[in-house]
Structure formats: structure tokens, C-alpha cells
């Protein structure tokens, strides 16, 4: 039996549920793998797990928010033959990565300012949180399985990969970034393939009743499909909601926020630029009040924008 460990960092549990819900596929895997650690599902103490000198496959979920999570992730990773980074928090920082523009104390203050702070003692003896990062910032994994939680394409590929690894001892085909190497837009059931996409303006979701057939961008609604890797079966779009970009960039290392800003700029009112002119275009773009939250919802921590912020504040 091979040893499989699932190690959570700062998680929501969505990746746990995604894995645990695989039922039969998971049972297939358990013919080859013994789960030596998975705190949500298996009752094994961390101290016992840490006695193992090596494990075959480590699946890491979640981001890194404390010194201890970082230490544990590094320690366990160094004993693992294959390291899988599962879910967009682990791979890209995910939604909590939106906080990476701030210092931990500012994040704490967002709560403290709203409640009754009973005692103020500057000599805090509690361990301090470290600046939030992705697992991929501290360890170099062998397999990246993005998504929030990982979509069906990614999970299928991951299970195939792990089964093959159990049978052959080799990681083949060696895919670093799971999912299909194309944009979600490419195979979108709504994609108007024959024409170039034209956004009639910018419409926030509260302004419209979403049409359940038409390309969201053509409704003026921001959809991250063009800049997002195909990791799912268009689940949100089929539920009549635009893609929010949980799959991350089409290629590892690309800044999907910036590439999508580019696509929106290309598509916005292309048919009317010469009549609405700069003022008209600016008026529409000004309706986007949160560029970071729209374009970088899951990937801010890995972006050039994050690096620029760090440069700006001198870190």
C-alpha cells in the first residue's frame, strides 16, 4: 500500500468535500493507497503522522496563514515523493489572497474595530500570523490542481494520475498544471464562435436579469471565461452565472487578471468607439468599482499587481 496524506493549511473545507464526494473513485484509489493523514475524514493524530519518515503522495489544500502552517507544510512536503497542490488557495492563494494587500494587523483590525475590545495590552503574547501566501510560494509541487473547488476535469485527471502512479511508480503523463490547456471560453456552450465578442457596455449583476442563453460579455456582464483555464464543465455558466475565474490562468505563470483586463478592453463597445469616444468609454469602465475583486478574485497573491504593491510599500 502506498501512503497518501491530505494536509490542510488555511482551508474552507471545500476541497475536503470535493475529494470526499468522489465516492467510488475514492474507493478505487483506496485499493492502492492507505490514508495516513486526513484530519477531516480520518481520526489520526498529527503526532503519529509526523512519525512517518516518508509518504508517497501528499495532497496539500488551502493557503498558508501562520508560521506553523508553513513549517508543517515544508516539513511534510520534504518527506513526500509526489506533492499535489489542490485547490486555488493552495495553488494561487485563492479568495483569502485578496488580503495579501494588507498586513496581518490590518486584517485583525477589521474585526477589532467592530467589537468590544475588552483589554488592550500591546504586549501580545499570541503567535502572530504571517503574511498570507499560497502553498506554491513555499514549496514547489509536482502537480497543480486548481479550482475553487477543483472542477470535474481536474479531479478526473488527478485520480487517473494517482492510479497510474500506484500501478507504475511513475508520474505519467507528467502534467504540472491540470485542466485543459485552453480558455474556458473556447468550448463555452454560449460562445458566439462566428463573431468577435462585443460588450455593449458594463452591466453589474444587480442591473440586469441574466439572459440564460447569450454570452455574458455580450450582455455587458463581466465573465472571466476568456482568461481562465478550462478546469470544469462550465458549471457556473450552465447555472446561468458568469465565470469568476476560480480556475486561474490558462498557463502557469501568466497573470490572468491582467490578461482579462486586456480582453475586456478589447471587447468593450468596439462597435461604437468612434461615436462614444473616450468620455463614453470611461463612463462605462467607471462602473467597475473593484478591479481587484473582479479580475483577481482567486489569483491576486500570484500576480504582478501583488508584486507591485509590495514594491510600493517597500517590502
Amino acid at each position: 500500500m502506498l501512503k497518501l496524506a491530505v494536509l490542510p493549511g488555511a482551508i474552507c473545507g471545500g476541497c475536503d468535500v470535493a475529494l470526499a464526494s468522489l465516492g467510488e473513485r475514492l474507493a478505487d484509489l483506496l485499493r492502492y493507497y492507505e490514508i495516513v493523514y486526513w484530519p477531516t475524514v480520518v481520526d489520526r493524530k498529527l503526532t503519529d503522522f509526523l512519525k512517518l519518515s516518508s509518504i508517497d503522495v501528499l495532497v496539500h489544500m488551502g493557503g498558508i496563514s501562520t508560521e506553523e502552517e508553513a513549517k508543517l507544510a515544508r516539513e511534510v512536503s520534504s518527506r513526500a515523493r509526489v506533492k499535489v497542490s489542490l485547490g486555488s488557495c493552495s495553488v494561487y492563494g485563492g479568495i483569502p489572497g485578496l488580503n495579501s494587500l494588507y498586513k496581518p494587523i490590518e486584517v485583525y483590525e477589521a474585526i477589532a474595530s467592530q467589537v468590544d475590545v475588552r483589554s488592550k495590552n500591546s504586549d501580545l503574547e499570541l503567535p502572530r500570523p504571517i503574511e498570507y501566501s499560497a502553498y506554491t510560494d513555499i514549496v514547489e509541487p509536482d502537480v497543480l490542481a486548481p479550482g475553487c473547488p477543483p472542477g470535474s476535469i481536474v479531479l478526473d485527471q488527478l485520480f487517473d494520475l494517482l492510479l497510474k502512479y500506484a500501478e507504475t511508480g511513475r508520474l505519467e503523463p507528467r502534467i504540472l498544471l491540470l485542466g485543459d490547456p485552453e480558455s474556458l471560453c473556447n468550448k463555452c456552450p454560449r460562445n458566439p464562435k462566428t463573431t468577435k465578442i462585443t460588450m455593449p457596455g458594463i452591466r453589474r449583476i444587480f442591473e440586469v436579469k441574466l439572459d440564460d442563453n447569450k454570452c455574458f460579455l455580450e450582455q455587458g456582464v463581466l465573465c472571466m471565461g476568456p482568461a481562465t483555464r478550462a478546469i470544469c464543465d462550465h458549471s457556473c455558466i450552465k447555472a446561468n452565472y458568469p465565470c469568476t475565474g476560480c480556475g486561474g490562468p490558462i498557463e502557469w505563470g501568466v497573470d490572468s487578471g491582467l490578461s482579462h483586463m486586456s480582453s475586456v478592453a478589447s471587447a468593450l463597445m468596439v462597435d461604437r468607439e468612434k461615436s462614444v469616444l473616450e468620455a463614453g468609454l470611461a463612463r462605462e469602465l467607471d462602473k467597475i468599482r473593484d478591479v481587484t475583486g473582479i479580475f483577481y478574485r482567486y489569483t491576486l497573491r500570484k500576480s504582478l499587481t501583488y508584486k507591485l504593491r509590495k514594491l510600493r510599500v517597500g517590502e
Binding site: 483586463m261 478589447s266 468612434k274 504593491r309
Partner: peptide, 22 residues
């Protein structure tokens, strides 16, 4: 219309810069 495309991109990047304190 390359110039219009540039205008739209710059508008978005300016907003982004403002949000991150640049």
C-alpha cells in the same frame, strides 16, 4: 482602433493602481 484599445486598458490599469495604493 488600437488607440481606443489602449485608452480602455489604461483606464482599467489606472483604477487598479489606485486600488493598490499607487
Amino acid at each position: 482602433a488600437g488607440n481606443f484599445k489602449a485608452f480602455k486598458r489604461v483606464q482599467l490599469v489606472k483604477k487598479l493602481l489606485e486600488e493598490i495604493g499607487v
